[in-house]
Design a protein around this nucleic acid. Sequence first.
DNA 1: ATGAAAGCGCTAACAC
DNA 2: GTGTTAGCGCTTTCAT
Lengths: 352, 352
Amino acid sequence: MKQKNIRIKDIATMAGVSEGTVDRVLHKRGKVSRAATEKVNRVLAQIDYTPNLIARTLGANRTYRLVAVIPDPSLDEYWKQSFDGIKEAEADLAQFGITINVDHLYYNPHKRESFQEVTIKAFQSKPDGILAAPLFYHASISFFRVLSESKIPYILFNTNIEESNTLSFIGQDSFLSGRLAAELVSIGQTNESHYGILHIYEDLNDSVYLKEKEQGFKNYFAIHRPETSRNIHVFNLPDPGRQEFPEAMNQVLSLPHLNGLFVSTSKAYVVAHELHKRNLSVRLVGYDLLDQNINYLKTGYIHFLIHQNPRRQAKTGIRSLANYILLGKKPPRKSLFPLEIISRYNIDSYLN
Amino acid sequence: MKQKNIRIKDIATMAGVSEGTVDRVLHKRGKVSRAATEKVNRVLAQIDYTPNLIARTLGANRTYRLVAVIPDPSLDEYWKQSFDGIKEAEADLAQFGITINVDHLYYNPHKRESFQEVTIKAFQSKPDGILAAPLFYHASISFFRVLSESKIPYILFNTNIEESNTLSFIGQDSFLSGRLAAELVSIGQTNESHYGILHIYEDLNDSVYLKEKEQGFKNYFAIHRPETSRNIHVFNLPDPGRQEFPEAMNQVLSLPHLNGLFVSTSKAYVVAHELHKRNLSVRLVGYDLLDQNINYLKTGYIHFLIHQNPRRQAKTGIRSLANYILLGKKPPRKSLFPLEIISRYNIDSYLN
DNA sequence: ATGAAAGCGCTAACAC
DNA sequence: GTGTTAGCGCTTTCAT
C-alpha cells in the first residue's frame, strides 16, 4: 500500500552502482564515467526521487551563509518590515544550518555610494547566496554581473532589475500598481478633476519602478478617461526634512481643481500632514502600512494605501534562496504579489 | 569561536550516565532511578540544551498521519481552494514524515448527517492530529469533546467554535467582515438607501458566523448611519438550484430604494446573475474569488469581494498542526486573517 | 533501571 | 572512477 520513499541506496541497487556514485551524479560532482552516469540517470528518469532534506542536512553537517542587502531598517519603517521578514525566515531555517548576515550590510537608501560599498562588502564575504533590494539601478548592474560570474545565486525583491540574471524577482507589478492608484484616486470624481503624481525625495534616474508606476497611472487615464489625461501633473519633491518642502507643496496644492494626489512611495504621510495643516480635502493615495500612514488613514487624510507587504516579500525571498541552495529548486523568475487595497475599513484586520 | 552545540552524548558524559538514560529523562519515558534522574537534571540545569530537531525526526523515523475534515471540494470551488492549500502544505511536510488524509473524509456542506458521519470516521482512524472546517455548530461540539478526551490535537479553520478546546482557530473576524461589507455596500450612497443581507441556502441555526456577519453589518449602520438602520432587510433564500429561487429574488429586488446587497456567503454570483437578467444596477458585495464571482466582478455586476483566502487558511492550519506535533510549538489561539478587498481594479494581481 | 548499539538517509573522506 | 564506510545527533531496541 504505502511504499517507502526511495533512498539513494535503492537507486544504487537499481542502477547497479554504489551509493557514492549515485550521490556524485545527483550533485554533479564529476568523477563519474559516462556509462555510470547514464545508468543512474536512466533510473532517475523512471522514478520520482525526492531527497530527504532532513538526512541531507544532518549528513552534510555544514552551514550555509546567506547575506541580505537592504536599506538600513532604523532609517525607515518600511525597511524595518522587510528586516522583520528576513528574521522570521531565519528562525525557520536555522534548523537547516542556514544563517543570514544582514546587520552590517545596511545601506542608506539615498546614497548611491553607500549602496556600492555594501554590495562590495557583501560580495567579498563570499556568501552562499544573496537577497537584495537594489534601489540603485545603475550601481546594481555591475554588482549582479559580478555575482553571476562568481556563480553566487541571488534573488531580488522590491525592485526588479530586468537586465540582471537573478534567480527570481519578488515584488509587485509597478505598472499595474500605478494603474490601480489612478483608479482609486479618481473613482467617483468628475472628468474636470486635476491630479498630481508626487515623487518624494527620490532620484528618478535610478528608480525605474517609480517611472513604471507613473506610466501605469497615466495609462489608466489615457484609456478610461482620455479627457482627463491632460490634467495629470508630475512633481518631483525634495527631502521632506528640508525647508524647501512646504513651499514646494504650496505649488502642488495651488493647482486649480486638484482632486487627487498619488504619492509614489511610502511617504504619503508627509503629504497628509500638509493637507492637515492647511485643512484641505484632497483624495490621497499612497503606499504601505507605516504607523504614520495608518494614522492618517484612520483620520481620513489618506484614503487608500496599497500594501506592498515588504515583510512577506523578504521572507519569500529568503525562503526561495534557501530552497534553491538546499534543494536545487528553481523559484519562478517572477513572483508578483497581490496589490492589497487598504482603507480605513479593513486596516484593523491587517494590524495583527 | 563558534562553540559546537551540546549533544545528548555530551550530557551523558557530564552526568556520568548513558545516552539512553539522558534520552529517557529528556522525554520522561520513565524507567530511570531517582539517582540517575537527578544527575541528569543537575547537568541540564547548568547548560542550555537545545535538541537537534533534524536529528530527532531522522532518528525517530516515524510518520504522523493528519486528517482534514472539509466539505467536498468537488461540490464547491471555495472548498476546492482549501483543498489545494492542504495539498500544498502536504508537499512541504512530506519530508518530515507527515501524511494527510483528506480524500475519504469529505462531507456535504448542506447535510449535517454527512458531517457527523465523517467526524466519526475521522476520529476512529486515530490520527495524530485533525484539521477541520466545522460548518455545523451543534454537531461539532460533541466531536471536539471526544477529541479533547482522546488527546488528539485539532485545529479549526474557516469557522470557529468558541466552546471547543482547539489548539488554534484560523480564519477571519466575521463581525468585522460584516462591518466592512456594510461600509463597502453603502459608501457614497445616500441615507435613504435600503439594503439587503442575503443568506443563501444556509441553515442559520448552525451557522454562527453568518449571524456574526449580519450583526457586524447592522452594527455599522447603527453607529455610522443610524437613520439608515431601519432600512436593513434580511433574507433567507433557498437553494439557488430550486425553482423558488428566482421568485424569492423577485421579492428582494422589488424593495423600493434598494441600493445595495450583501451576500453573506460566496454565492454572490447567483445574485449577480439575477441582476444581470433583470438588467438592474444594485451595489453588490460578496465573498471569495470563485470563477463566476470574478467574472461578475469584471463585468461590474459585483462591486466588491472580500477575499477569505481559504487556500492560505488551510495551509496555515496544517502547518500549525505539524509544528505542534513535530516541535511542540503551540500556535496562537486565534490567527485572524486580513479582510482583503477585491475590486475590478486589483483582481488581476490576485490571479497568479 | 541501564548501557550498548543498530539504525534513520545522506555526505564526504578514504581506499583501491 | 568507484565502492566502502564512518559519521551527523537522536531514537529505539535489546541485552543485561
